[in-house]
Simulated assay, not measured.
Amino acid sequence: MSVHEAEVAFLQLFEQLEIQRKPPKNRFPLLKLPRVVLLECIEHLDVLEIIIFSLLSKRAKSIVKRIHWNLLEIHLISTEQGPQIWLKLPTHSRVEWIIQYNKEKESSVYPVFESRVEGPNAFYHLFLYDNGIEDVKQMVEHICEVFHSPICGIRIFEESLIEWIIKFQPRIQYVSIDDKVIASSKKLDHALKNLKVTEHFHLGIVAIDETFQIAEPIPFSALSIDNSYWITLPSILNGVNSIIRLYDSKLTPKDINTILKAWQLGFKLRNLEYLEINTTPLPGFDGFTRESHKDLNLTESDRSDSRPSTV
């Protein structure tokens, strides 16, 4: 968002577009207010108003940064309509502010504001013209700096975001990488070694050589891996994961049996709380379940959705 766009957006928020048609002497000199009064005014702005105000000038940004804001929850995602930045405050649990990038209108129409109410929840949208991913990155960095808040979660929908998030903020709670964003084993290895995911990591389909495998553990607490043919037995046994979900796995019944035995004995996989392995048995191989459960004293689930009361 340029300075001019920020000025237009700020005026739109306060329904003062007619000021643009008045002589400069009739405009309200907001930045000329005494500092105490100015800070008091800024503290009563909402999240989008604060962001837009901080984009007006370097001085405006400097003033906003002096205020001690509540920690802002920041998520960068993508939808069919384009990239979105989702913002929430812990003090406003039913309110979300969304910066949406798209090209549905002529560029001259932007910025556009919309709001909607769904039951007890309120959503405030700021629509900006999508000039490319660099604008989105700069906006996220700006918001993090202004509110002194880290990014909570990111959906990586194009490859350039991997290197950007590694350099800007490698330690992050939630990471999801879309299908075929990673197109080489080198890029996959780089992402797994340099991202520090503290909560949940999801990886979609990777467009890499099907002979590629890893033996090292993935050092994230919770994993969901689509097309996980490249994850091997040592990678799981030596891990410290609490949740593992593997889809389209190539693990054999013997591999699964080894994992379950190690988990049951407690020498390995001590942090593991939940394990799901989705695999396709070989045609005609009816003993898949029998071999994977061999020599295990298992209790069949009653398929109840309620929380178990016994171990």
Rank of each mutant, 00 (worst) to 15 (best):
I244G: 04
V136D: 03
S185M: 08
K88D: 03
A191L: 11
F285Y: 15
F10M: 09
L55S: 11
E276H: 12
S306N: 10
Y229I: 00
L282Y: 09
G132F: 07
L192A: 01
R303M: 12
T198K: 04
Y174W: 13
Y110R: 07
I172G: 01
G82Q: 03
N271E: 14
H200D: 12
T258L: 12
V37M: 08
E291R: 13
H125N: 12
R270A: 08
V109I: 09
T252W: 01
L269F: 04
Y174L: 14
D295I: 03
P23Q: 13
R21Q: 11
P29G: 06
I42K: 00
K180D: 14
V117D: 11
W86G: 01
Q173I: 12
Y247P: 01
I243T: 12
I67W: 01
I67Q: 00
E18A: 12
F168D: 04
E5Q: 14
H125T: 06
T279N: 05
L203Q: 08
I85G: 01
F123R: 10
G266R: 09
L192S: 01
P120F: 11
I165F: 07
I156P: 04
G82K: 05
L298G: 02
I166L: 10
E15F: 14
N238M: 08
P23K: 13
E104Y: 11
E300M: 10
E80P: 02
S304G: 11
H142S: 00
G119E: 03
K105E: 13
I151H: 04
E80M: 13
V47W: 02
A122L: 09
V95H: 13
V112P: 07
S78C: 15
N70L: 11
H202A: 08
Y124C: 07
L30N: 03
V311A: 14
H92Y: 10
I67Y: 00
K103P: 01
G204S: 03
V140Y: 08
R303F: 13
L76T: 00
R245P: 00
E291I: 06
A6F: 03
K187R: 11
I259W: 02
Y124F: 14
A222Y: 07
L38E: 02
S224N: 13
T280W: 06
A183Q: 15
E300N: 11
T232K: 05
T91R: 04
L45S: 00
V109D: 15
P150L: 07
P170F: 03
K103N: 14
I236N: 05
H190A: 06
I77W: 04
T232D: 02
W230M: 06
K268L: 15
N70K: 13
A262K: 09
S306Y: 10
F28I: 09
I205G: 01
E199I: 06
K187S: 10
I231S: 02
D302H: 06
V47F: 02
V197R: 05
I165A: 10
K137P: 01
V8D: 04
R155N: 08
K65S: 01
L192C: 01
S115Q: 15
V136M: 09
A9N: 03
E273K: 15
E114C: 05
E15N: 15
G204L: 04
T310C: 12
R66W: 00
A60I: 01
G266S: 08
V146A: 00
S184D: 07
D46N: 14
S304F: 05
R245S: 11
E15A: 15
K294A: 09
V95T: 15
W164K: 09
P24H: 10
G287P: 03
K22T: 11
I177A: 02
W164F: 15
